[in-house]
Amino acid sequence: MSMNQGTEFKKGLQAGISIAIGYVPIALTFGLLAKTTGLSIGETVMMSMIVFAGASQYMSLSLIALGTGILEIILTTFIVNIRHFLMAASLNEKVELDRVFNRIVYSFGITDETFSVAATQPGKLTTGYMFGLNLISYASWVMGSGIGFAIGAGLPETLQQSMSIALYAMFIGLLVPSMKQGVKVVFLAALAACFNTVFTMTEWLSTGWAIVAATLLSAVLVELVELIKKKGKVTGVE
């Protein structure tokens, strides 16, 4: 690791503050729900530590409550989280070269939120940055789950309600500056949003697959259009 990994780590921590703000209310609620579902505090905190994936953890609680089998719960978790494969493949192109061990460690921390923050960062991503970003997100998630279970309550109702916008506001806050830079980003996001709406509204696909399919379709289509435009220019010159 180079000398400036320390500052890079701090930069990562700072970039993760908005994720932590968004995670805390969701984690508190998760802890509370886990308690009412009948998990012990150890199981609750361990799930947040080992799985670290909000949507699938919530889903597992409702499946446990329904008395679903272990294998089915694990399979559902896999399907919900397979979208991270696409995100990891995209990040792999953007991170600095480093020992494979470090990369595997920080890949554990890839969530919708940490990915979004990291991927919209300009330039290459350093290992220090990735560790900082993931650590603050992970800590807020794990501690929030434990505290939610222990105090048996979330935030006050009105605050909880207003804070449910936090992660979406963060996604918008990450997207808008890139949209200003080029119409391509606008197309990518709008197209994926449209596809996702169609897939979920028609119930063709479950939420996890809908995000994967919408993202891939939009990313490939926009790239194809760009390729055709480039070819057109080349033949135009000839």
């Binding site: 979208r83 696409l86 995100m87 493949a89 995209s90 192109e93 919708d112 990915f115 979004s116 991927a119 919209t120 979406y168 996604f171 918008i172 990450l174 997207l175 890139s178 391509k184 980003v185 990518l188 996001a189 709008a190 197209l191 994926a192 949003a193 596809f195 996702n196 709406t197 979920t200 509204m201 809908a210 995000i211 919408a214 993202t215 891939l216 939009s218 990313a219 926009v222 790239e223």
Partner: peptide, 15 residues
């Protein structure tokens, strides 16, 4: 893969 982040954000936000 470079397009993926922006498409993902669109799909995560909406609907």
């Amino acid at each position: 893969l470079k397009n993926v982040p922006y498409a993902t954000l669109g799909a995560l936000i909406f609907p």
